[in-house]
């Protein structure tokens, strides 16, 4: 289990993390979204012991991480900015990992390199951006970690590789009860793999929830009546958003879906449709409820990418 308490990290006058509290259970795939500068990478670097927190603590299984080789040996970190030794091949890098990670599994390294169809004796600097990312994922997974941290890892991977990597992560989580934290700009990337999602903004977690709850807790209803109606007629329902266009209304409702549908049906609508929400929509309404604008939090660019992807 990873526990962060009042975690603060500053770079000169800039506060990258401002008192973050969060708990990530063992065997969980934890997604973290946020705009550039939200503090995602800083958070991962604190968990992996790269940075020392200015205040607050981060503990893994009850132990602090910084300068603690025993804990760090159970971790693997794939940063957004990858590092390889100058002019090295994958085999050379594997030697380097083997020297540092006691659990480095050479068999698995060979297996994964074959699966990703990477040439292990070719200099890494000749690899494409995606291949380099694949290589670093292979090294991380070959360390047989209990805790895996992926910072913007899916960026630059093609859909096939993305799915392959996701599959491998899930496999480790299932088989070993490993824990993974994945950061991304893209909610869509995380939607199908994460158990939990957190939204970081200006160094703080503004929203943290179980993905399943997020998806089922909110739903969209489209309803139409022959007679005129107003929002007041739905008093008692937890309506997050209401939009009426003539005799047709769309609303985002929080709560028990069956109960809400039964109540609406009792009002004899001519149309009653319950529509699923995309994770982006869920986030938008949840953030709104918290007083944030989702576009501002995630960054307009990221949201636009999201929409394109959808």
């Amino acid at each position: 289990m990873i526990q962060a308490e009042k975690l603060v990290k500053k770079f000169d006058e800039y506060t990258a993390l401002n008192g973050i509290d969060c708990t990530i259970q063992k065997g969980c795939i934890y997604g973290m979204v946020g705009s550039n500068g939200a503090g995602k990478s800083t958070f991962l670097r604190l968990i992996t012991g790269v940075y020392r927190p200015d205040s607050g603590t981060v503990k893994v299984d009850g132990e602090t991480v910084f300068d603690n080789p025993a804990v760090k040996a159970r971790m693997a970190f794939v940063p957004d900015d990858l590092y390889f030794l100058n002019g090295s091949t994958m085999d050379r890098m594997a030697k380097c990992y083997k020297a540092a990670y006691p659990q480095f599994d050479e068999k698995r390294y060979r297996f994964l390199a074959d699966s990703f169809r990477l040439t292990t004796n070719r200099p890494i600097h000749t690899f494409s951006k995606g291949m380099k990312r694949q290589a670093s994922i292979i090294f991380a997974l070959s360390c047989r970690p209990d805790y895996m941290f992926f910072d913007e890892t899916f960026d630059g991977l093609d859909p096939v590789m993305r799915n392959l990597v996701k599959g491998l992560i899930c496999e480790d989580v299932e088989d070993k009860q490993a824990t993974a934290i994945i950061t991304s700009h893209s909610l869509r990337e995380l939607e199908d793999i994460c158990d939990q999602l957190a939204l970081l903004h200006e160094g703080g977690v503004v929203l943290e929830s179980d993905v399943q709850n997020l998806k089922t807790g909110l739903f969209k209803v489209q309803v139409a009546f022959l007679q005129p109606f107003t929002q007041e007629q739905f008093t008692g329902m937890d309506i997050q958003h209401f939009e009426q266009n003539g005799s047709v209304a769309q609303m985002i409702v929080r709560g028990n879906r069956d109960e809400a549908v039964a109540r609406l049906r009792a009002m004899e609508p001519v149309i009653l449709d319950v529509l699923p929400l995309s994770l982006e929509e869920v986030f938008t309404y949840e953030m709104k409820a918290l007083g944030y604008s989702f576009q501002d939090v995630l960054g307009k660019e990221a949201v636009s990418d999201e929409k394109k992807a959808v």
Partner: peptide, 10 residues
């Protein structure tokens, strides 16, 4: 970052 993430004391 790479070296400081290694499971070794500084």
């Amino acid at each position: 970052d790479f070296y400081h993430a290694l499971p070794e004391t500084r």
